[in-house]
Design a protein around this nucleic acid. Structure first.
Lengths: 354, 354
DNA sequence: CCACGTTACCCAATCGTTTGGTCCAAACGT
DNA sequence: ACGTTTGGACCAAACGATTGGGTAACGTGG
């Protein structure tokens, strides 16, 4: 119970109260050098009780100044109001906290200038390492940090050969392709995302590649990358639906928000979702299952991906060598692609990834 | 450009290079005492150029140790994956950053034990102040912090007489009541929220109170408080729709996520949203307008509310006296309550709050 | 009785800043 | 011409911890 009125007790006060030297108290309370040089059992116990009684808590600021380690991790994400990143951050923050690290987070909005600005600011605050959730496929910026030997781990998006914790996006795209194909769709489209984000790029590539293998190639003009929000999905889908020639019968949106936008556009065009046009999303956000028309989506373990990112960074801060982790996705089939529940033989719930 | 290989230059190195005493350099570079005791113009300029050339950046850790101010703000929210809180946090973090404060955030999940745990942890890290986004109407916990003279500001939810930055939730509920009443609904219900959260309590109270004034009282069993997520909205709405007697013709969900859940339940019950049952939400999240069936919702300036919370706390840290801010809401009418656009005379967009 | 290894401590330097105190010289007022 | 102010700069003591380097006291084997 710290009180702001009178400042918290210092190590010196504890030492005085226990009638020992401050250094002895330090060694006893935080036996860094495995207690070899600590005090006798009796003295140690006395120091500990005094510390407890006084409510002593080591001042982290002084510790940092002395040791040079801030025990802080900077996290940079495109937007925290993106549920996917927020969830990953929750997992990451929780893991970091249990390992004694505190995290603090900034939104780069996928803007290179803001990204650099936050990075330099964090560096000047002497953070121990970084977790980037906003990496681009072009690793130039990250390579620069590596050259300055700044510890970095990526989350959600991969880039170059930097260590990352991600879902298997290519596989996720393939799962959707297999599902669409099984439902008999031969004329498909991909909406949303950005070419420089590995998530959407890999999801799209996996989808297109598998579709081609299955004999139904997706022409380039059927891949419309407009962004990650609902609005992006709406405009892309609207474009597809009024394109010359046959409109697609199935749309793969690279995340649930673009999927929701796409569903809106489908409905606005007077088509029925699921029946006329199938729509699938990605990430299986909590909303997907609860939408007025439940959305088929690829589930990736977002919190787990976040936790792993924190673990990877902390281990690499300890000098261990670490390598990227990739998490397997699952396809969750729902009415937006399969209104009558035919594909999964009457089931509308989990379909395991192979 | 800091490099992790060789440690960044210290003030002492700058002073040596500029041939002045370290204290002179300190005063010149960070004129705390309004420059009265600083150096001559020539010396000052010399020190500044040397500092720039060496890439000097003041070590925040040493600063904190010396001054006792951490320049840090702890933020505690129920869940960062809740878009509303995430958006407020974005605004708050941004404002804090421009004022030279860094923020760090934890999820309490509305659990009192976690809340206390995070608070004590932050206190032991010597944060300068707190912003709580998870306050309960019962101010006991916050009163305790005040007694220990810990600077606190609330965001989103109010509590007791603690300083807060919130939307005018009561007024928002009234707006929805007026809208429903104008559409001819006499039989309404409220779903979602928790009795101990001022947001949902005030929204519900404002709605019920105005509805009664307008001659259509809402019976207590028509107010079902189940939580804040989509699932909560779905179960509450399902209960209402299969209740004995007449089912309500209009549902006010205390936020957009519960509204989405409620819409799902309405559809699952075979009723048409907007025509058979009107549904309104709260917060006007970006999704609301882009749903397959656009959702009527009360807009509150979330980012602005967050920014103001940061401003209030920082000003109170500076010793200024501050008071709570309440932001006016606007009703955004869309198809989920008004499918043909009659109410707003053909318009489906903004209706200003009076 | 002495040399020596242990045990159980204490001492003091150090991390990078800020800031009240001191001091000298130049400027100033009368 | 002589005290008094003041601008400009230096000195050194903090802030709260860690940690390598002493050093008494004590037991023990030769």
């Amino acid at each position: 119970m710290l009180d702001r009125e009178k400042p918290p007790p210092t190590l010196a006060e504890v030492a005085r109260a226990a009638q020992v030297h401050i250094s002895t108290a330090s060694r006893v309370l935080h036996a860094a050098d495995d207690g070899r040089r600590a005090a006798s059992a009796a003295t140690a116990e006395r120091i500990r009780t005094v510390a407890r009684d006084l409510g002593y808590q080591r001042d982290p600021t002084a510790l940092r100044l002395r040791t040079g380690h801030s025990q802080e991790i900077a996290v940079i994400v495109p937007r925290l109001s993106d549920l996917v990143l927020a969830t990953m951050y929750e997992g990451l923050q929780q893991r970091a906290a249990t390992e004694g690290y505190t995290t603090y987070v900034s939104n780069s909005q996928d803007d290179q200038q803001l990204r650099e600005q936050f990075t330099e600011a964090a560096l000047s605050r002497r953070v121990d390492g970084f977790i980037f959730g906003d990496a681009t496929l072009d690793p130039t910026f990250l390579d620069g940090l590596r050259r300055r030997s700044v510890p970095v781990v990526l989350v959600n998006r991969r880039s170059g050969d930097h260590v990352s914790s991600t879902g298997d996006d290519r596989r996720g795209g393939q799962l959707v392709a297999e599902h669409f194909s099984a439902l008999g769709h031969t004329d498909c489209a991909v909406v949303g995302g950005r070419p420089w984000a590995s998530t959407s790029a890999d999801r799209g590539a996996g989808f297109v590649e598998r579709m081609a293998q299955l004999g139904h190639p997706v022409p380039p003009e059927r891949v419309i990358q407009t962004g990650f929000d609902a609005e992006a999905g709406a405009t892309a889908a609207a474009t597809l639906l009024r394109s010359p020639g046959r409109a697609p019968t199935a749309i793969f949106a690279v995340n649930d928000f673009t999927a929701i936008g796409a569903m809106g556009a489908v409905r606005a065009a007077g088509r029925e979702i699921g029946r006329d046009v199938a729509v699938a999303g990605y990430n299986d956000t909590p909303l997907a299952a609860l939408l007025p028309l439940p959305l088929t989506s690829v589930r990736s373990p977002m919190a787990e991906i976040g936790r792993e990112a924190a673990t990877l960074l902390i281990r690499s801060l300890r000098g261990e060598s670490v390598q990227s982790r990739v998490f397997a996705p699952e396809l969750m089939v729902r009415e937006s692609t399969d209104p009558s529940g035919t594909a999964a033989a009457g089931r509308t719930d989990v379909v395991e990834a192979p």
